[in-house]
Structure formats: C-alpha cells, structure tokens
Computed example of a mutant assay.
Amino acid sequence: MHSLEKTISKNPGIVPSNRLRFRNSRKAQTNNNSYFENVNFSILAACQHVSEIAAYRLVFHDSSPAFYDKLYVGGVTRGQIRPLLKIMKQNLIQMSTILTDKAQPLAMKEVMKASFDAFLMVLLAGGTSRVFHRHDHDTLQDEFEQLKRVYSNNLEGLVIPENIVDGEAAVVEGVIALMGQSTEQLIEDFSIVTCESSGIGVMGNGQKLPMPPTTCKWNRADPNTILRVLCYRDDNAANQFLKRTYELPKRR
C-alpha cells in the first residue's frame, strides 16, 4: 500500500479525474490525505480481529489440555505450570514461522492477553474440580510470573516490552493478591463493596447481602470477584459464610 501510494502521488495522471477532484477538495481539510486511507484502516482492524481469534484458539483450544482442562485440577502443587509453559513456547515459535515479521508483535500480544484470561478463568471459574487454600498464594504468584516471562523474555526474536506485560497482568495479580488474604478479611471486604455497589449503605438486622451480578470484568475491587475467591476457598469459615448468606453448599 505504501508503494502504491508513493507511485500514485508521483504520477497523478494515472488516477481517474473524479478521484483527483475528490482528493483536491479534501486538501483544505487535512495535509495527511491518503489514496488508501480507508483501506489502511480496514487492514489494521482486520489484523486485530484475526490476531484475537487466532490467539484465543491457540490458548483455549490448542493449549486447553494443559491449560484450562488440567492446570491446578485437584489442588495446587509447585511446578504444575511447567508443561503448559513448554507448550506455549512451542506454539509461539510455530506462530513466528507462519506470520510475517510485522504481524508477529500484534499476534503475540493477543496470545498474551488470551493466556492471562485463561489463567484468570482457572482461578475464578475453574469448576468443581478446583479448590484453593490461602497458602497457595505464593505458588500461584510465582507460576504466574513464569507465564509472564514467556512474553517479556526474548523468544525467537519475539518479545513484548515489560511495561506492557505488567499492564496486562495487573488484573490477574490483583486476584492472586486477594487469594493471599485471610478468609475473614475477604468476607469483610466483600460485605463492604457489595453494600456500596448495591446502594444499601449499612446492613440492617436480619438483612441479607444481595448476590452481586456477574460483570465478566473481574478485578480485586469487584464484589463478584471476591465472592468467587471465597467460593473456591477451601476452609470452614468460607463454607459457613456462603451457606449462611446465600445457602450455597460446601465445596467438599
């Protein structure tokens, strides 16, 4: 496109006269006219869309047996993420052989975002086969750092700036921080943010906390996110609170 743009600019006679009149009428509005302005925008949008679809397929389909289907099923033990990291690295290297150099940074960023979303789903929407304890926090934090390094370290020339990786990882790290809090602190924080978000203010005698809606925008200040951490917390205090407040059955 850039080559065609340059050629046409140097040889305006090859462009139909009505196109030239349209172009000349726009010169007063902007000095940055392009014969292919709309095409360039469309190409960028298409690249973004295709990269996102390909990334989520790679993470949620191709890597699912080692990721969402398996990671931390039955409990957390140190080193569980290593097989996943190996598969992710292999997939990224294969991706680099298929894509052009210019397409690789965008595709890799989308893969990173998809893998962080999948890790978040493991923690907050992993089904009945997963439970977490407060002491799992350090292992989860360490293993997520290893996942981050897949993208910030040089891998076959593919690397994402560390500040971008940290920015995309902030939500997951916030949830992992919640998982390191005591159950009592989680219950207190949950009660406060639920009352604030629902407009209740102060709970009256006999009044029950409303069930927070699922926003699908999880973060450490979101009541639904804190509730999910409590639901996956395997201890008596969490079980009793959930049973008393929402009549939810015990995890085990």
Rank of each mutant, 00 (worst) to 15 (best):
N205R: 14
M203N: 02
G167D: 12
S152C: 13
C231D: 03
S96C: 07
S191F: 06
F36Q: 13
Q104W: 00
V150Y: 00
N153W: 10
V175L: 01
N239G: 09
C195R: 15
R19V: 07
Y232F: 15
N91E: 02
I53K: 09
F119L: 05
T100A: 06
V175I: 13
Q29V: 11
F67E: 10
Y232S: 09
N239K: 08
G79K: 11
F67P: 02
Q48D: 13
I160T: 10
F22K: 06
P12G: 03
K148W: 00
H2S: 12
I81S: 04
Y72F: 15
F41Q: 09
F132Q: 00
K109V: 05
Q90F: 05
M88K: 11
D101G: 01
G157E: 04
D69S: 11
A125W: 00
E162P: 01
Y68R: 13
K89C: 04
R130F: 02
V122L: 08
R26T: 11
L92P: 01
S34W: 09
I176Y: 07
G13Y: 04
R134S: 07
E143R: 13
G201T: 02
V159A: 10
L227S: 03
S9G: 14
A170Q: 12
C216M: 13
A221D: 14
I98H: 12
V15K: 08
S129R: 13
W218G: 09
Q207C: 03
N32H: 13
N163R: 12
